[in-house]
């Protein structure tokens, strides 16, 4: 199972700072099992955000948010509610956030941190998309993971080696930061990249080995 933890509400409100209306999505797969994004948590989140003055234009629960085509199909039924929201908030693993980002032309805020994937990568099979960093940064990167997809895991990219949309390491590897910039350009949110993202807390990442289990 992909283990997630919900991000603190203050952090989510910071993410939603510029927005009044949001569409909420939960996942009936692992996130429900972790009590971070199932039916109950989506209802709770709706209430907490409304208390904070946000309008929830709609909610949806998807069986497996790591399944891109399922996300696409399910969200089609909510088109109007999604279009009337300024952004989406996804209570699921990093892969689910990225699957949602890839099918909706709006900012998708990550509601959870992915702390472990138990060796699985969800149902979206092409390529590695989440590295269980435990402190999800998809908020700053247009829903494309720079930890799994940038060769240097840069948080303030791109590096000087990005060329023709490819990473400096190989013409077969897309530059994650080119993708991030293209996506944020499309959404008219390049301003997200005008701030400096602080050094990351790697202690909560599985890359710290057993120490992350403290």
């Amino acid at each position: 199972m992909l283990t997630t933890e919900q991000k603190p509400l203050e952090q989510l409100l910071e993410y939603l700072d510029r927005e009044k209306s949001v569409f909420l999505i939960g996942c009936r797969g692992c996130a429900e099992g972790c009590h971070t994004g199932g039916e109950q948590e989506v209802l709770d989140m709706k209430q907490r955000l409304e208390e904070a003055g946000k309008t929830i234009t709609g909610t949806s629960l998807i069986d497996f948010m790591c399944n891109e085509s399922l996300v696409r199909m399910t969200l089609q039924a909510h088109e109007d509610a999604i279009l009337s929201a300024e952004s989406l908030l996804a209570l699921c693993c990093g892969i689910g956030v990225q699957a949602t980002s890839s099918v909706v032309d709006k900012i998708v805020h990550p509601g959870c941190n992915t702390v472990s994937m138990g060796g699985r990568h969800g149902e979206w099979r092409e390529g590695e998309r989440c590295m269980e960093c435990g402190d999800c940064v998809l908020e700053f990167t247009g829903g494309i993971c720079p930890i799994a997809r940038c060769s240097k895991m840069l948080l303030n990219g791109p590096c000087g080696g990005s060329s023709d949309g490819k990473c400096e390491v190989s013409p077969d590897v897309p530059c994650a930061w080119q993708l991030i910039i293209e996506r944020l350009t499309k959404l008219g949110r390049l301003d997200k990249l005008e701030r400096i993202v602080a050094p990351k807390d790697w202690s909560v990442s599985l890359m710290s080995g057993a120490a992350s289990k403290r």
Binding site: C159, G160, E168
Partner: peptide, 28 residues
């Protein structure tokens, strides 16, 4: 600097660090 990726060099099997990026290094 961020640095050229380790796969370019004479120890391509090395573990890259990239704990910070160049902008975070400048700030630090």
């Amino acid at each position: 600097l961020t640095g050229d990726h380790q796969v370019f060099g004479n120890h391509p099997t090395a573990k890259g660090v990239y704990d910070l990026d160049s902008i975070q290094l400048i700030k630090m």
